[in-house]
Nucleic acid binder design. Sequence first.
DNA 1: AGATATATAGACTAATTGGTCCATATATCG
DNA 2: CGATATATGGACCAATTAGTCTATATATCT
Lengths: 178, 178
Amino acid sequence: MDVFWSRGYHATALPDLLRATRLSRGSLYAAFGDKHSLFLLALDRYIAEAIARMDVELAPHRDPVDGLRAFLAGYVDRTSGAHGRRGCLLVATAMELAGKDAEVARRAAGFFKTMEARLVDALSRAKTAGRLADGVEPASAARILVCFVEGLRVVSKTAPARAASQATADALLDRFVT
Amino acid sequence: MDVFWSRGYHATALPDLLRATRLSRGSLYAAFGDKHSLFLLALDRYIAEAIARMDVELAPHRDPVDGLRAFLAGYVDRTSGAHGRRGCLLVATAMELAGKDAEVARRAAGFFKTMEARLVDALSRAKTAGRLADGVEPASAARILVCFVEGLRVVSKTAPARAASQATADALLDRFVT
DNA sequence: AGATATATAGACTAATTGGTCCATATATCG
DNA sequence: CGATATATGGACCAATTAGTCTATATATCT
């Protein structure tokens, strides 16, 4: 997973994969079939980890506004400094392959939908708790947040400045919660 | 430019470039040096076009809120349907190459800064005109908008739904302007 | 028209790509 | 210990990569 993450699909060559897995060519093909299947496996793992993180941050028993802050703080963290420069396997993959690879497109679309659903849930709970500013709709606010964090990953590829990202995320959330 | 845009840097092979430019191998190398230089030229053109569009949409003589609406409408348009699925050369490039290619990283960072500056300008004019909601800072709102539109490009790679994008963009702007 | 410069097509190279295959080493089990 | 199954390394393959070079065609200019 790490190799694809750091280099992207096309730029990752078999020798990179062999080094990373410490497998020989024969064993790797016996175990995973081909490069594409192995990539899909890596992508699935990446997505599963991301969803697991959200499930903790936005857990139902938690204060929803705290959850949203934790969610954004996580993205600020992952888009700062070296982490930020490394980028996001999912975003990179969506841009590089989603157009030509239906399997990849399905997974990316599914992930964005899942994130949106988790956010809608947290925002709805915030709304019933009276913590949402007037006129804020959970549905559209969730979509805004999805776009925001994914955009943060893009911009932070070249300008991974923690303080600015944190301030920006805070400013956005302040428009939503009271 | 179109070829790199549709396929990405690594996935664009010399034959694709020859077909697109209708040049022969010799002529192409005589004219542009190598694949990388040609790519940089394409990227510069893409960026120049994007900045030119912003200069029109966010022109100083125009009503700033109208300008912001036009700016967002442009992104909604470019992330809908087939346009959306095609994605954005700049975002794709930033994710694919910015990590390893300093020239590309410089250009991407410069573009994001330019967009942010144009937005700060428009938002400042809106603020002096009393069109900004209470507590909205042009600086942070501009950064939010940059992340939002670039995130829209990512999400729309796999779900280029015009109506949803438009509604989301409207909802975001509604949090800023009165 | 004829000399000269320029552009072209495509043969060619060296390196690299993803993928196959097999002889050998290493376990596992009786 | 000896037979059998499994895993391993790496030679090998065909296709493709970016890039070079030259013989020929096409302009251009006098």
